[in-house]
Amino acid sequence: MLKDITMGQFFPGESLLHKMNPSLKIIATVLYIVAVFLCKSAAAFAFIFTITVLIIIVSGVPAKVILRSVRPLIFILVFTTVYNVFFTKGDTLLFSLGFVRVYREGVFNAVLIAVRILCLLVGSSVVLTYTTSPIMLTDGLETLLKPLTWIGVDVHTFAMMMSIALRFIPTLIEETDKIISAQKARGADFESGNLIRRARALIPILVPLFASSIRHAVDLATAMECRCYRGGRGRTKMTTLRPDAADWIVLLFFALLIPAAILLNVYVPFFSI
């Protein structure tokens, strides 16, 4: 049952976004997020929404996956919408029911903020996590954080730890599955009782899992020593990722989203929040 979890949620493909240099992609994601936050007017939101849809189409990530990723957001979306509709004060009263007063501005606010949350989460995951393999992601991060080595941060070790953690996710998921089956075979009950009971039922899963991950770690450390690993010192890389022209153009496109959003805010200021 745990095999359904695809951690890191990477969808292999050949799109422009997939091929992009990971370091630049991380920067592009940050630019995109800034652009989304700068949107204030309805026109700007319409623009960023269109751009997000465009990005999804270019990435080739199936629509079903996008819709599935929206599902956990429904609660937040409903909550913020309701909050904004009922608690925003404005000039034009739409209707009132007892002490509840709904203004036109409230409705607009609600819609625009919902769009913002949606764009923010769907857009950034499509740009970054869905189209970048975990290893590329850590590689990109390592390159970006390299300047920190000057102030004594061990960036290489940090990146290595991240990539090993990612590498062991499928192994540990498989193992959790086995432990759950083994405990069930001995009569463990994970499904009944109140919340506290169920949480306590997880202990017989967590303890063996913890023990076995320590065993994995010890073995892996020995294996790495045998393969002459001694940190980042004097280490080379088989593939060095150099951004090409296409990567810079995509990055420029993301950078231009920011002035575009600001201009739309200023020149088409209808229904601003």
Binding site: P134, I135, L166, R167, H216, D219, L220, A223, M224, R227
Partner: peptide, 13 residues
């Protein structure tokens, strides 16, 4: 050196 458990000696994905 090659060890017993294949999962514990592969470092990358």
């Amino acid at each position: 050196m090659v060890f017993q458990n294949p999962d514990n000696q592969l470092v990358t994905t």
